[in-house]
Amino acid sequence: MTKELEHKFISEFQENQNIIHKVCRIYTNNQEAHNDLFQEITIQLWKAYPKFRGDSKLSTWMYRIGLNTAITLYRKSKRTIKTQDFDTVLHRIQSTSYDDTEEEQLKLMYKAIHQLSDIDKALIFLYLEDKNYKEISETIGISEVNARVKMNRIKTRLKTILNP
């Protein structure tokens, strides 16, 4: 039974693993920290899986556990090296046809996001994932009004970071 469950989990997780990579993308800025957080989230998902009843979408369930792990359960690894930025954006852009300004803007954008607080990162993440304010407020555990207020503040803050 456990083997069956494990097989089911790994197969489903494998298909949806991008969700977790994206959470790690927002919360970490080097490869090692990314892998570390990815690992902890995966373990937490597996631990919670037997209780997953399927009354919510698997992706929604993964968003929650992913963000909760990143914000609450995960302790930053001491090995985090700040100077070695994990610049997937830059790396990726070189192979795609972006114009220089867009490339530069994106790079700055990710840098700015990494300066935000853990909670703000969660809101930005859910915003990027096209979640509405109702879902955002339910995931974080704040009221919809507060989610809106907070989101507006984050936008202003990002603007200040980008245009000092």
Partner: peptide, 24 residues
């Protein structure tokens, strides 16, 4: 960016699942 992330294999995920958590 979906296409850019590494796709972990079944075996790789299996290994992670059997590791121990170090959560708070």
């Amino acid at each position: 960016q979906d296409a850019d992330y590494p796709k972990l294999s079944y075996e790789e995920i299996y290994t992670i699942v059997h590791k121990k958590s170090s959560s708070v």
